[in-house]
Amino acid sequence: MKPLIGLVTGIVFGFLLQKARVLRYDKQVGALRLKDMTIVKFMLAHIMVAMVGIYLLQDMGLVKLSPKATVLGANIFGGLIFGLGWGLVGYCPGTAAGALGEGRVDAVFAMLGMLVGASLFAHTYPWLKATVYTWGVFGKVTLPVVLGVNHWLVIAVLLVLYAGLLRFLERRNL
């Protein structure tokens, strides 16, 4: 059942990516140049919905959250590599798969780059685990735990901030 749920949610997400036009190369480049915030607005909207949905499911006892440990070295190193790849090919993993589904040939290069990157990661993992993965280890923490407050308070504040940012971007026609 889990693979079927994954397939259906993947198809729905791909459909939403396509409908929001975030698979388009000009939107990707516009986001990288901070000229077109369509992708940022799309991601913020999805983060807001997912944040509420996941915690609601947790409170209903339907899911159990198991956050990964916060490791600053791995996050910074991974973020730099992700950003470099996105800047070079103009796609992130989700949009590359969606663009490939639309028949865009340039997305093949992004997919090949991801395969090469995954292979490099697998081959260097022992070294990364002994070095980068030891830098800034904070364990399994969440913002509500760090602040010592109920998760719904943090969610409410973040929803207001995200909504304000979305409104600001819309007013600036970004």
Results as ranks from 00 to 15, higher is better:
residue 6 G to P: 00
residue 6 G to L: 05
residue 8 V to Q: 00
residue 12 V to L: 10
residue 12 V to S: 03
residue 14 G to A: 06
residue 19 K to N: 03
residue 20 A to V: 01
residue 23 L to P: 00
residue 28 Q to S: 09
residue 29 V to K: 15
residue 29 V to G: 11
residue 30 G to T: 13
residue 38 T to G: 12
residue 38 T to H: 09
residue 39 I to V: 13
residue 48 M to S: 15
residue 52 V to E: 07
residue 54 I to W: 08
residue 54 I to Q: 04
residue 55 Y to A: 01
residue 61 G to F: 02
residue 62 L to D: 03
residue 62 L to H: 14
residue 65 L to N: 03
residue 68 K to Q: 09
residue 70 T to E: 07
residue 70 T to G: 08
residue 71 V to N: 15
residue 72 L to T: 15
residue 74 A to G: 02
residue 74 A to S: 13
residue 75 N to G: 03
residue 77 F to I: 03
residue 78 G to I: 05
residue 78 G to S: 14
residue 83 G to T: 01
residue 88 L to M: 14
residue 88 L to P: 06
residue 90 G to A: 03
residue 94 G to R: 15
residue 95 T to V: 09
residue 96 A to D: 04
residue 99 A to T: 08
residue 100 L to A: 15
residue 104 R to I: 02
residue 108 V to Q: 10
residue 114 M to L: 13
residue 117 G to V: 05
residue 119 S to Y: 13
residue 122 A to D: 01
residue 125 Y to I: 01
residue 128 L to W: 10
residue 132 V to M: 07
residue 132 V to Y: 09
residue 133 Y to G: 05
residue 134 T to R: 15
residue 135 W to Q: 12
residue 135 W to D: 05
residue 140 K to I: 00
residue 140 K to V: 02
residue 146 V to M: 06
residue 146 V to S: 04
residue 147 L to E: 03
residue 150 N to S: 11
